[in-house]
Simulated scan of single mutants.
Amino acid sequence: MRYTTEDGGRLNNFAVEPKVYKAEPPSKDQQRNYLFMGIGAIALLSSLIFVAMSASNVG
């Protein structure tokens, strides 16, 4: 661990900084997977809303 000594002899403890890296854009396969997951999420959400409206007799 890193310690620094301040005036008066007090020790100060600092957290270890994580390694910094540059993010890379998603590949074509990842973009396709994100599209399918988005379509699946929209389908799930719309079906849940449909079931909720059917169960509550709204609509």
Score class of each variant (00 low, 15 high):
Leu35Ala: 14
Leu44Ala: 15
Ala15Lys: 04
Gln31Pro: 00
Asp7Ile: 03
Asn13Leu: 13
Ala23Asn: 10
Asp7Ser: 03
Asn13Ala: 11
Leu35Thr: 10
Leu48Asn: 11
Asn57Gly: 08
Thr5Leu: 01
Asn13Lys: 11
Ala52Leu: 09
Lys28Phe: 12
Lys22Ile: 15
Ser54Gly: 06
Tyr34Phe: 05
Lys19Leu: 03
Pro26Asn: 13
Lys28Asp: 12
Thr4Glu: 10
Val58Lys: 02
Val51Glu: 11
Val58His: 02
Asn57Lys: 08
Tyr21Asn: 06
Arg10His: 08
Ile49Ser: 00
Ala55Gln: 07
Asn12Leu: 04
Asp7Trp: 00
Gln30Arg: 05
Met37Pro: 12
Lys28Asn: 11
Asn13Ile: 14
Ser47Ile: 03
Lys22Asn: 14
Tyr3Gly: 05
Leu48Thr: 12
Met53Asn: 07
Tyr34Arg: 08
Leu11Phe: 00
Glu17Tyr: 09
Phe36Glu: 12
Asp7Tyr: 00
Pro18Thr: 01
Asn13His: 12
Asp29His: 04
Asp29Ile: 08
Leu11Ala: 01
Phe50Glu: 07
Met37Leu: 15
Gln31Arg: 15
Tyr34Trp: 06
Pro26Ala: 15
Ala23Met: 11
Asp7Glu: 05
Pro18Ser: 01
Lys28Val: 08
Leu45Asn: 02
Asn57Arg: 08
Tyr34Val: 07
Ser46Asn: 10
Lys28Glu: 13
Ser47Thr: 09
